[in-house]
Design a protein around this nucleic acid. Structure first.
Lengths: 196, 196
DNA sequence: TGCAAAATCGAACGGTCGTTCGTAGTTTGA
DNA sequence: TCAAACTACGAACGACCGTTCGATTTTGCA
């Protein structure tokens, strides 16, 4: 890997954390350069525009999410066990102390939902992929007979994601660790209400 | 009402809308002054600091929410009918075309959750009040025999709010009108899974 | 080892940010 | 009616924003 690519990775690694704390718009070229002891112009040259930097950060975030939450769950058998693994991995991701500012996606969604552009497009695509992956896992659970036949996988994914989203909001804003147990209870109830 | 108070209301009314579109941090003194054809300094004098302006906007938002979503629901009989009214009022609030940028709370939560200060405190308090109001309405539904006795009202409020939050995210980011129907379906399932 | 290419830098740009201050105009109550 | 209080203004501030550009250093291959 060339020196330039190495630097680029270092930048994105830091930007990824910063985005969780301060939002995508809060990832500032100057602040980023300071933290990494680079010059503003040197850092800037790696991306050419702030918009490209944001897209790159979003790409990093979604590939890390896939790597930490989705892929490991494939080691669990398809169906309910895999859904449960996704859930637990996701909880861990959202509360990971190595990401003190938390996951950047909720913030990015709020920031970009009314702001057309390449970053928004990138976010929409990654969120659609995520939802599809969830719905697919739910479909497998139906096929395995773990969820009842009439289950709408997209609806299941919607409710699944909603529980996680709510947990994150309470956990971050209210600093309420009970939110994790609440989320687990909600997930259990979700699963049982779709039971065959 | 004095002239000054009138101006202050005009400012907050516009700021309220702007915050839904651009976030609390995006409510800029300069942009706000331009839209209202006021001078920056004239507008600024009404609040004394940006932080105070943010607190004022948050206060406006939570009192409008109470007025539009919670209070009208008191006309419905306590218990399930009232919960359903809250839900429908809330859906209307979230998708109100008179608030083109949507509700500012999800954005404010994401923005402020890692940023200590008076705006965060104001937001936390208003969100706690909201949750308590929801939990109280759920408690009444238990008392009325509309939900089973073992129902944890706070847990019910958590899941209720989660459905709304998810609906909002999909509706805003994916521009998916189906999200409203998904939310209604999720709410129905929530209620039925807590049925006595 | 030499040299082109790649990477990084420093200085400067116009713009916008929140904020301060002295001043002018307008409302309001005695 | 008249002065005091209130309201709004314009100009300027230092700080930071993203971005440009030419110079300088570092890298990696022939």
């Amino acid at each position: 890997m060339s020196k330039g690519d190495e630097t680029r990775e270092r930048i994105l690694d830091r930007a990824f954390l910063m985005a969780g704390r301060d939002g995508l718009e809060g990832v500032t070229i100057g602040a980023l350069a300071d933290e990494l002891k680079l010059s503003k112009s040197g850092l800037f040259a790696h991306f050419g525009s702030k918009e490209e930097l944001q897209v790159a950060v979003l790409d990093v975030a979604s590939s890390r999410f896939t790597e930490k939450v989705l892929l490991p769950a494939f080691k669990a058998p398809r169906g309910l066990p895999r859904l449960e693994r996704i859930f637990e991995n996701w909880v861990e991701w959202m509360t990971d102390p190595k990401m003190p500012g938390g996951c950047m996606f909720p913030q990015a969604i709020a920031e970009l939902d009314d702001k057309p552009g390449r970053p928004r497009d990138a976010l929409v695509e990654s969120q659609k992929n995520l939802i599809d992956a969830l719905a697919h896992a739910a479909k497998l659970a139906v096929d395995e007979g773990h969820l009842k036949k009439s289950t709408d996988p997209q609806q299941f994914a919607f409710e699944f994601y909603g529980i996680i989203t709510m947990m994150n909001a309470w956990f971050r804003l209210l600093r309420d660790k009970k939110s994790i147990e609440r989320a687990r209870a909600a997930f259990a109830r979700l699963v049982s209400s779709y039971a065959p």
